[in-house]
Design a protein around this nucleic acid. Sequence first.
RNA 1: GCACCCGUAGCUCAGUUGGAUAGAGUGCCUGACUACGAAUCAGGAGGUCGGGAGUUCAAAUCUCUCCGGGUGCACCA
Length: 603
Amino acid sequence: MPLWLEFLVLAKKIIYNANVTNQKNFVVIAVSAQLESLFFTAMTNAFGKSHWQALIQVANKQQQGDYQSNAAFALAKQLQQSPQAVAEQLLAHLPTNDIIEETSISGPGFINIRLTPACVSASLINMLQSPQAGINPSQHPETIVVDYGSPNVAKAMHVGHLRSTIIGDALVRLLNAKGHHLIRQNHVGDWGTQFGMLIEHIIQEKLDLHSLDSIQELNTLYQASKKRFDTDEVFAKAAKERVVALQAGTPDTLALWQILVAKSQEHFQSIYNQLGVLLTQDDIRGESSYNDDLPKLIDDLEKHKYLTISQGAKVLFLEGFVDKDKNPLPMILQKSDGGYLYATTDMVTAKYRIENLKANRIIYVVDCRQRQHFDMLFAAVKHVGYADNSVRLDYVPFGAMLGDDRKPFKTRSGQVIELASLIDEAIKRAYDLYKSKNPDATDVQAMQVAKVVGVGALKYADLSNDKIKDIVFDWEQMLAFDGNTAPYLLNAYVRIASILRKADDQDGNPVSWLLESPQELDLAKHLIQFPELIDQLSIDLAIHRLCQFLYKAANLFHRFYEHCPILNANHETKQSRLKLCLVTQNVLHTGLNLLGIETLESM
RNA sequence: GCACCCGUAGCUCAGUUGGAUAGAGUGCCUGACUACGAAUCAGGAGGUCGGGAGUUCAAAUCUCUCCGGGUGCACCA
């Protein structure tokens, strides 16, 4: 389905939703969808045509209005009239309603829309009473598989694993909030030739794996065996035989492999706990679990005559893929020596997710260097009919993490940075920062704050930029209290918490609002866009726009806070402002939670 | 060589899928703490959207081309 059509379908769903709710108790769910509906009617009434879009969007000129419609331009061409004339007729045919305060036409034909206070407060009431700040559950919940994380057994997790883990976690939380059925899949690298050399090394050296108490020791072991494999031909031969033994399931070899896997899983879980991501042991389904299905896949594809033998390998040729000499580029599924490749595993995995897990949508959070692989994989899976049009396959590519020299982020000595030490440093820096601002704080308090701020800053720095771009790693920037950072957002949240603690006379009446100052209105009108933003993000997965939205919300709150006394205002105003604080808090808490970032009551 | 991604203020980045005079933060300059946390707020300066051509009422956004940077290109994952 093309993107524009999906948006249209989505908008229709929201309209339906809003109408249903309106019959009960005048609760507005999505303002833009209501406007869309009103302008849709106006177009039909004025011109008798109904297949155009109302092109409603949040105004880019806030002085002129809250929302705008650009429909007049598209219509003008078809009707051979000037955009201004079309705009006038549209406004003349706008149905009576209680959400539009005033409209105006400006420029070449922009229609500006100002919302009524009643419309704004109705949305706020809804958000105040909703546990998720007004996020609507999807009308058509899907089963969505998210493939992310994917560390390797017998190796320490490093910076290269961070982005997939953080981004994947946020996407899972986002889609889960929309009421979809999420299946997390951690496609761990637990199989392949490297385990032959590692196990052979362990056996020859008579090492006791149970005595290993850190992943670093395993890492060292891996490097030692790799070195032997590359330099010692006798060992290399033995290692290759060991792979065969492993694949055949020889008991002693398999037992050692299982210990390696178990040790590694403990390590993964300790990192996931430190990071506060949702992944657990239950989400692990490594490459090895698809072994038995690899020959079956080849059989199946051969039976249906999809495979070609090329230079001794069994391959799939797909339309549109060419190599450097413009010859057809094959997707190799079985090597000439009979072995399988990751394309084979990925294809079996996709098949499993669609057929066994009943996935409607599969999201792969994998770095952008694998784009061509996923292009081919998706084309292949569709070509052979494992995925029909009802299944949506999304590749979510992301860029590299760079140091301040704009080269891949490494230690000063050029080593890969281990994730455990990176997280520790984030917490340490947050700890020192907190201590410098709060010298009287206890170590326990400081540590509590530092974990939330440090890890939150690490995640936010990753999520707040467009995923496809490389991110430049900068501790100073990510832990700054100014600008688009986690500490700034957390600070806004903490301030609200502080105010609400002090306000012991909240009347709890959700209905009456007094939104009078421009700062209050700006904040309110921004907040009510939250639910529809989440709807959009659940389709395009542009998670950085959530960060941008939350940053703006925190910024508008700070302005409101500076200009509008809350606790010292007269009773009615105070109650209204406290509720605005509550909605802001709800949005910040919900939004940060979707990003996988915890909140604090004080810092 | 072919393909894909990126190029926006000194720096780090947005730009709602083609809409109005391109926006934030940071850094720089100027102001505001005897009011709910100044970890904040108010204001100023700062731009040939890499260059050029095209499509159209309208282009940072789409097309072509060139320049610069990155990544990937048959039996590793």
